[in-house]
């Protein structure tokens, strides 16, 4: 089987700071995997390079065999890479429903339509409600996005990404800032979505219950370099990882 995402010796530095150092790994289709590492290890920066928000200094990033380095985020999202952000990236003054609906309209290529009111676009509306249902946000559909609790904003961000039907979905700390109960719920939800939407999923997380609970594979970043890669059990028993990262937790 061919990898869906393949990084080949990716380098990135900000001035003198090496934030990605010779990172190479391959993600298999249908896999659910985690990226862990201390604050500032370069996890988000790695996502930014995969989605075209940052340009690596060198190396290749292959998505379905095609090098996406140099493509704009716009082009990359159209190829099937979706992403939810570390800080939920929403349209704060719009309703929860419209946040999802604008993504549905984009997906259906209806955002240039300028005459009929948004509510009358049946397919987009139905699709938006279905997504909210899946996320458990249906009851909040008519609230403004900025009024939502922090955790629900993060879910909504995932919802927007899901609408675009990505093959590969990147989640940046989906449970950050949530209460233990919310984390539990979100963990179950993400697992459910992974199956229901037939996704390849890569998530960054500091919550170890989530990492060791649902990831099939774990990659550890430290100071921009890939320190270890393996199954949850392998990582748990890796001496280097325990001293560098897990030990402190």
């Amino acid at each position: 089987m061919n990898a869906i995402l393949e990084l080949e010796s990716v380098h990135k530095s900000f001035g003198g700071l090496q934030v990605t150092q010779n990172v190479s790994f391959a993600v298999m289709p249908g896999e659910i995997s985690a990226i862990i590492g201390p604050n500032g290890a370069g996890k988000t920066t790695l996502f930014n390079q995969i989605t075209g928000h940052l340009l690596p200094n060198s190396g290749r990033i292959l998505f379905q065999g095609h090098d996406v380095v140099g493509d704009s985020p716009q082009k990359i999202v159209a190829q099937g890479i979706g992403r939810a952000f570390q800080i939920a990236s929403l349209f704060p003054d719009e309703t929860v429903l419209d946040n999802v609906k604008v993504a549905c309209l984009s997906r259906l290529d209806q955002t240039r339509r300028f005459w009929r009111p948004v509510q009358r676009f049946r397919r987009a509306t139905e699709r938006a409600h279905a997504i909210l249902e899946d996320l458990g946000l249906e009851k909040q559909a008519d609230r403004l996005a900025f009024e939502l609790a922090h955790g629900d904003q993060k879910l909504l961000d995932i919802g927007i990404a899901l609408v675009l039907e990505p093959q590969l979905l990147l989640l940046d700390e989906p449970t950050a800032g949530m209460s233990p109960e919310e984390r539990q719920r979100t963990r179950e939800l993400i697992k459910k979505l992974w199956k229901a939407y037939d996704l390849t999923l890569v998530f960054i997380e500091h919550d170890m219950d989530m990492v060791f609970g649902i990831a099939q594979k774990v990659r550890v970043l430290q100071q921009g370099a890939l320190l270890a890669e393996g199954t949850p059990d392998e990582i748990r028993n890796n001496k280097e990882v325990v001293t560098a990262y897990l030990g402190e937790a």
Binding site: L90, E94, V102, Q110, R112, R113, W115, P117, A124
Partner: peptide, 17 residues
């Protein structure tokens, strides 16, 4: 009509994010 159409929604989204 434009302001409340998908185009209008897109414009508001452009402002916000």
């Amino acid at each position: 009509r434009m302001a409340y159409s998908p185009f209008g929604l897109m414009l508001r989204c452009v402002r916000q994010n």
